[in-house]
Simulated scan of single mutants.
Amino acid sequence: MPNALLARLPSRFRGQLIPLTGGLTNRCWKLITAECAYWLREGSADTHALGINRAQELQAHQAAAKVGLAPNIHFALPEQGILLLDWLAEPDWQQVPRDMSRLAQQVAHLHQLNADVPLLDIADQAAHYLRQLQPLPKALADFVPYFSQAGVNLPFQPVLCHHDINAANVMGSRPWLIDWEYAAYGDAAFELAVISDSFGLDLCQQQMLLTAYNRATDSGGGHQVSAARFQARLPWVHWLTALWAALQYQQTTNAEYEKMQQLALTKLKAS
C-alpha cells in the first residue's frame, strides 16, 4: 500500500512513509524525503456520502495558505483525495494550552477571505444525511421538525468558513488550520458554534470567544456575530454531528460513531 501511494506522487517526493494516528475517515503519513519532511493525506473514497467536495477543499485551502492560515500545498490529486503539505513540527491543540482569543483572530481573518467555493446550506446538508439514513430511527426523527423553525434559522451574511475547527485541526501557536474538507461559504455564527462545541466551552468562555471574534472582525471591517445568532446555531452543530455519526455507524458499525451520535443527541436535548 505505501509503495502504491508513493507511485502516485511526482518522483521528487519519493521517500519513507511513517503512518500517523488520529483522523476518523482519512489516512495520513509523515513523508520523509532526502530534502525535507511532508504531511501526506489520502482521503476517504466515500466523499459523496460524507458531503465532501475535494476540488472545493483545495480551493479553500489554497486561499487560506496564501495568507498563512494553512500550511503550503506541494502536490494534490483532488479526485483521489491526495494532499501533500508542509510538515508542521508543532503539536495540535489536543496536546497544548489553547489561546482561544488568538484562534478567534485567525477565524476572523479567514472570514474576510474570498475563494471560489459555494455556500454550505446546513439544512441541505442535514437533508443529505437524512436521505441516507432511511428508515430514520425514532431517536433522530423526533428532532426533524425542530429545525424548520425560524428561531434556529436566523438571517446571516455568508463568509468563507472552515466548518470543522476542532482541537485536532488546530496546530501550533500561530495557530495553523488544517483539514479543509468541509470548507465553504457559511454563517460565521455556525463556525463559532462548532468551535464552542468541539472545545467544550462553558457560557463564560463562549462569551469570551464571541467578544474576541467581534473585536477582530470589527477591526477588519467584517460582520459581527450576535449572541442570539450564536445560540441559534448550537443546536445545528449537535444535529449535524448526530446525523454524520449515525451515517458513519451505519456504514462501518464502529462503536465510536454510535457513542458520538448519542453524545450529540444528549447535547441537543439539553439545548
Rank of each mutant, 00 (worst) to 15 (best):
241 T>W: 02
202 D>V: 08
88 L>R: 03
220 G>F: 09
171 M>T: 10
64 A>R: 01
209 L>D: 12
2 P>W: 02
95 Q>R: 11
217 T>I: 10
204 C>Q: 14
243 L>A: 07
267 K>Y: 11
143 F>R: 01
33 T>W: 06
255 A>Q: 13
146 Y>F: 12
128 H>M: 08
141 A>H: 06
223 H>Y: 14
15 G>A: 05
268 L>R: 01
53 N>C: 00
139 A>E: 14
88 L>D: 08
25 T>F: 00
201 L>M: 10
162 H>K: 05
96 V>G: 01
109 H>I: 14
44 S>F: 00
24 L>T: 15
52 I>V: 15
183 A>E: 09
118 P>Y: 12
228 A>M: 09
30 K>S: 09
96 V>E: 14
59 Q>E: 15
127 A>G: 05
115 A>Q: 04
145 P>K: 07
47 T>R: 11
224 Q>T: 13
214 N>W: 04
228 A>E: 15
182 Y>C: 02
50 L>T: 11
79 E>L: 02
17 L>E: 06
34 A>T: 13
12 R>M: 13
261 Q>M: 15
210 L>D: 06
192 L>E: 06
246 A>P: 06
173 S>L: 12
250 Q>M: 05
211 T>N: 08
72 N>P: 11
238 H>D: 15
79 E>M: 01
56 Q>T: 13
108 A>M: 09
67 V>G: 07
225 V>Q: 05
43 G>I: 00
171 M>Q: 03
40 L>T: 02
38 Y>K: 04
228 A>C: 06
69 L>F: 02
74 H>V: 11
17 L>P: 09
140 L>G: 12
103 L>A: 08
210 L>R: 02
208 M>L: 13
72 N>F: 02
160 L>R: 00
91 P>R: 05
170 V>R: 00
213 Y>M: 14
207 Q>S: 15
243 L>F: 03
82 I>P: 00
12 R>E: 15
212 A>K: 07
26 N>Y: 00
132 Q>S: 08
237 V>R: 00
19 P>G: 07
216 A>N: 05
240 L>N: 09
52 I>C: 01
173 S>W: 02
33 T>L: 07
209 L>E: 11
117 V>D: 04
175 P>I: 07
67 V>H: 03
224 Q>L: 11
206 Q>S: 15
113 L>V: 11
217 T>H: 04
39 W>L: 10
32 I>E: 11
260 M>N: 08
255 A>D: 10
197 D>C: 10
253 T>P: 02
4 A>Y: 08
82 I>L: 15
42 E>F: 01
61 H>T: 01
265 L>Q: 09
239 W>G: 10
214 N>P: 12
254 N>S: 08
113 L>Y: 03
220 G>W: 06
149 Q>G: 11
28 C>N: 15
249 Y>V: 10
127 A>E: 14
